[in-house]
Amino acid sequence: MVEIANTGVTLRQLQIFREVVRLGSERQAAKVLRVTQSAVSQQVAQLETALGVPLFRREGNRLVATAQAWELLREIDGTFLSLDRVGKSIAALKGIEGHAIGIAAPDIFCFTLVPRAVRQIRVHDRSCVFHVKSGSYQDVAEHVLNGRADLGVSRLPLDERLFDWMPVTTATNVCLFPAGHRLAEKDLITPEDLRGEPLIDIEPRQNTHQMDLNALRYMGVEPNIAVEVDANGHEAAFIAAGVGISVTNSVVAKECALFGLRFRPFEPSAIYHYVVFWQRGRQLSGQLRLARERLADALRDSA
């Protein structure tokens, strides 16, 4: 086994330790690593001896990581994620297909867009397993960058030093509201139409927030913020509950059809460029190229 810098600690011990922390069980770690449980226990014990600190305590049948274990995991996790990325690139170069695909997408896209794409991918490969990560656009980028997802669905800008992407579609601003709302009678909605309306808005760190609020204030309308959410799509539930209305974009709004909401064009507007993206320079396998195409198809269907 490869010893790390004459420390008495091996790469294999750290790999086993990482899985035990992640799964909270020596038995589950053994299953994932395809070794015996006794081998896992032995390697963990040797690692604790080499480090001179306890890494786990037992609570019933479960292992609970100590503070020292979490500190060690933070230090080594990035290294193993990098090794995972290298392994996937090598497999792609050799034409070896994996059986798992990681997809990261904004929360709202996990209701219909991602499931549609997954269904189409599984038509070609029923053995494929999907790991779906969601969150804000920033979260999605971090999932792909850190190797927790192979492909991401997002919008520009993205850092071209870190990612490659496939342009898919564009979106413009719309006003999103419940069925039967007075705004349904209008073909085009302007800031003046929102005077006095309670708004569900994206929190201030989001660029969309500043654009929407600046447009309202430019027209002499002070925004009446009822709720701030931290990711696009979260506003849909509050709108459906009758708390308020929102300004979002047309791609997000179409995904909100699940909530029975309606939308109309809103001006002034911006253009949003949606993409499917992956780590810069990564060689995509045939399976991932198929997944990229199906995600792009699903995104176009939402445009």
Rank of each mutant, 00 (worst) to 15 (best):
R126P: 09
A296H: 01
L194N: 02
Q37R: 15
L151Q: 12
Q120W: 01
F80D: 13
E160N: 05
P191A: 13
S269K: 08
L83H: 03
V64C: 06
R182I: 15
G152F: 02
R126Q: 15
G8H: 07
S154K: 05
F238C: 07
M219N: 11
N146S: 15
D187S: 12
L183P: 02
G180Y: 10
R126V: 15
S89Y: 04
G52S: 09
S302L: 15
H209S: 15
R264C: 07
A92M: 05
P204V: 13
V168H: 01
A104C: 11
M219K: 09
E267W: 04
Q287Y: 01
A270W: 04
R12E: 12
A296I: 00
V276F: 00
D107E: 13
N214T: 13
P167Q: 09
S82L: 06
R58L: 15
L81C: 12
R57W: 10
P106A: 13
V9M: 10
R12I: 11
V64Q: 07
R22D: 10
R119L: 13
R148V: 08
E192C: 02
V2H: 08
I189F: 08
S269C: 07
I96G: 07
W70I: 12
G52C: 10
A291P: 00
I189V: 15
A236D: 11
D159W: 04
A184L: 06
D193M: 10
P223R: 12
I101V: 15
D187M: 05
H209T: 11
N224V: 13
P157M: 13
V221D: 07
S250M: 12
P115M: 09
V275S: 04
Q279N: 13
L284K: 02
A39W: 12
I202V: 09
T190E: 14
Y137P: 00
I16E: 08
E235Y: 00
L194Q: 03
V20H: 10
R58E: 15
R57Q: 12
F109V: 06
E197Y: 07
R294L: 12
T112L: 10
A91P: 00
H209C: 14
T170E: 05
I101G: 04
S302W: 03
T190K: 12
V174Y: 03
V229D: 09
A141G: 09
A69F: 08
Y218V: 12
A236N: 10
V53D: 06
T248P: 05
D212G: 06
G244F: 03
L295D: 10
G233Q: 06
A30I: 03
F56H: 01
R292P: 00
